[in-house]
Design a protein around this nucleic acid. Structure first.
Lengths: 184, 184
DNA sequence: TTACCATATATCGGAATGATATGTTTTTTG
DNA sequence: CAAAAAACATATCATTCCGATATATGGTAA
């Protein structure tokens, strides 16, 4: 998901600074399906300015250095429209947690249980955050995207919680010496 | 998710070529939570060889150019263990589809419906693929990861299908002129 | 008052992405 | 059966992206 198109898309909702764009993209209401840091946003905005797809008004208040408020141009809207016209690339999910979990059997006993617990509370927090964003949201397309986020995170949470219970049960059975008496 | 650690992790399951690693990472049973192409795997393997974390046996059969079968070394296992010891980074989900969907109301009528339909069949295929992998899988940790993939993709599918129905209903109502008669 | 956090811009090295080049073997299909 | 397509296998390269860091100010909490 090209950062330039991402910037154009976000700016199509209203003018703002590069700082604001980063906030929306990596903390705000778009952050559950995209990600972009300063290191990609500022260069993207420079290139977009050069190409005439955005312009900025420099605000030079007393003391404060400079504050560039970017806004999308007509040519920028056309570029965005063009990008939206071709089919979107495939979704991609990356999970270091799942990667780590592959080696659960080669790591200390508490390894997986600790990570699972952390993941559960993290996911719970994500669900809460997305739900409250969804409640406040009056823009239908954003609501659709937020709803998607809620749906998959709730499913993830349910899966992890269910797994957690079976793990706890297993551990209890092993501790009580029940497994050995059955296995051997 | 560092490609070097990814390679070490995959090689910890058995020796194989760079080609095989790419296949597992971007088509195989790990591909639903990671992604790596030749452009990152081959350099990673070179660096890992230099560092002594992997070694390779060059197979020079008649005609065939070269086939490097990589295997992890003891130092590689230690490096992997070390990487696994620190907490995993946050999961990240990127969706061009959701990004595109943000602009549904500014695009032609059939725009969103077409993309939604495509996404639904794509997701259905993903669910099927993951489920069949899960059935064949006898490695418990991999089963956990696959189960996670099934869970979130099934949730995504359910969400999209439900949304699709409401979209179809709305379109039908609008076409029949029902909406106008109510709205005005 | 000292530290810390939010605002805001910007750069830089290292890493990853995506496409492409090259060449062989195996499989499919007309 | 031959031609075409797909799979096998390594490798590089330009562009893009990531993560950390530098800089500077104003507000707020310890």
């Amino acid at each position: 998901m090209n950062v330039k198109i991402l910037c154009l898309g976000i700016l199509s909702f209203g003018e703002m600074t590069g700082y604001d764009i980063r906030k929306l993209a990596s903390e705000g209401r778009f952050s559950h399906f995209c990600e972009a840091g300063y290191g990609s946003i500022y260069p993207a905005l420079s290139q977009l300015t050069e190409a005439g797809h955005v312009t900025f008004a420099e605000e030079a208040e007393a003391g404060k250095p400079n504050r560039k408020i970017y806004s999308i141009t007509e040519s920028g809207r056309q570029a965005l429209h063009l990008a939206l016209s071709s089919a979107p690339g495939a979704d991609r999910f990356k999970s270091e947690f799942l990667f780590h979990s592959l080696f659960a059997d080669k790591m200390p006993d508490d390894y997986f249980r600790t990570r699972l617990a952390a993941k559960i509370s993290e996911t719970r927090a994500t669900v809460e955050r997305l739900k409250s964003s969804l409640e406040k949201c009056d823009h239908e397309p954003s609501g659709f995207a937020l709803g998607f986020g809620v749906a998959i995170n709730e499913a993830a949470l349910a899966y992890l919680e269910q797994y957690d219970e079976t793990v706890i049960m297993k551990a209890a059975l092993e501790d009580s010496g029940f497994m050995e008496s059955v296995d051997e």
